[in-house]
């Protein structure tokens, strides 16, 4: 049983960690030149897109300025009392976020519990291994039609789809992390009489935490994908439903704005999770850093 790490290795060097350490010697100039070296390509591409889109008037590829304007009008032009969110923003975001986090949390709790069980018992692991390998390989969207029949359209179907799809990284990573806790650490605990629940919470889980967090992070990214797909197929509310209805109404700037919104959400989730992870796993990255 292998752990799912996703594209984890690449997360660190390019993630928020690296960006924090800006050279501070001659602040203004360094940031300017450094920023230019990083940003010129993005600026160039966006500029080209803007010019080509304006000259060609291609309905499918509206200029970025239009997308940004529509993006703002659709969701963020509301009153200040609502944090500038429009009514549509509240209508779109709320069901999406509720489903996303319910599904993810459900998968996290069940995956963690099952993962601990599998990590502790090699018999349980061997019995369930084929079932789990198969379950992990089922592309979650293929179950959406079935969930629609069982739960009908709505939140229950979406939460089930998300939970089924994202449980695997949590479960397999937890099992792997718990299984590979250093034997010496467990023996040390045994010598000093740390057993049962104390051992689970103070030794096993902290030791497995780096792998568990990696699983949770992959899951969160995957939950966003499944949230969108479940809304594209079986919902009339949420960000995915906005996407599909604007596509069907040929309101392409609105559709593009939806894509931008989802990209921003993806970034945001990643950043927040990285922050949480750094808070809880600082010992791990720092101990690693000293080793190498």
């Amino acid at each position: 049983m292998t752990a799912i790490t996703g594209d984890h290795p690449a997360e660190r060097p390019t993630g928020t960690n690296g960006r924090r350490r800006r050279p501070t010697g001659v602040p203004g100039l360094r940031i300017l030149t450094g920023g230019a070296a990083r940003l010129w390509l993005v600026a160039l591409l966006v500029g080209c897109w803007e010019i080509i889109a304006r000259t060609k008037q291609d309905a499918y590829f509206p200029p970025p300025s239009t997308i940004v304007r529509v993006f703002h009008e659709l969701w963020f032009s509301g009153p200040a009392t609502h944090l500038f969110l429009t009514d549509k923003a509240l209508d779109d975001f709320q069901p999406s976020f509720v489903n996303l986090f319910c599904g993810w949390a459900l998968a996290a709790v069940v995956g963690l519990a099952l993962g601990i069980l599998l990590g502790r018992s090699s018999v349980a692991r061997e019995i369930l291994d084929p079932v789990l390998q198969f379950g992990r390989a089922v592309p979650p969207p293929t179950l959406i039609p079935f969930f629609i029949v069982v739960f009908d359209f709505g939140a229950q179907m979406q939460i089930s789809t998300i939970a089924f799809g994202v449980i695997w990284p949590v479960l397999l990573n937890t099992a792997d992390g718990v299984r590979t806790v250093e034997k010496l650490q467990l023996e040390t605990a045994e010598v000093f009489g740390i057993t049962g629940a104390a051992r689970l919470f103070r030794i096993t889980l902290p030791a497995a935490a780096p792998k568990i967090f990696a699983g949770l992070r992959v899951s969160l990214g995957f939950a966003l994908i499944l949230m969108v797909i479940s809304e594209l197929i079986g919902s009339t509310t949420g960000i995915g439903a906005h996407l599909i209805s604007s596509q069907q109404g040929m309101e392409l700037p609105e559709m593009w704005a939806g894509i931008v919104l989802l990209g921003i959400l993806g970034c945001l989730f990643n950043a927040v999770f990285a922050l949480v992870e750094r808070r809880f796993l600082s010992w791990h990255s720092r101990a690693r850093g000293l080793d190498s």
Partner: peptide
């Protein structure tokens, strides 16, 4: 493992808990 017994292992880096 008896109650009144303690062990010091060779591999301190693994027997101390890094977290």
């Amino acid at each position: 493992v008896p109650d009144n017994l303690a062990v010091v292992f060779q591999d301190y880096s693994r027997s101390l808990f890094p977290w």
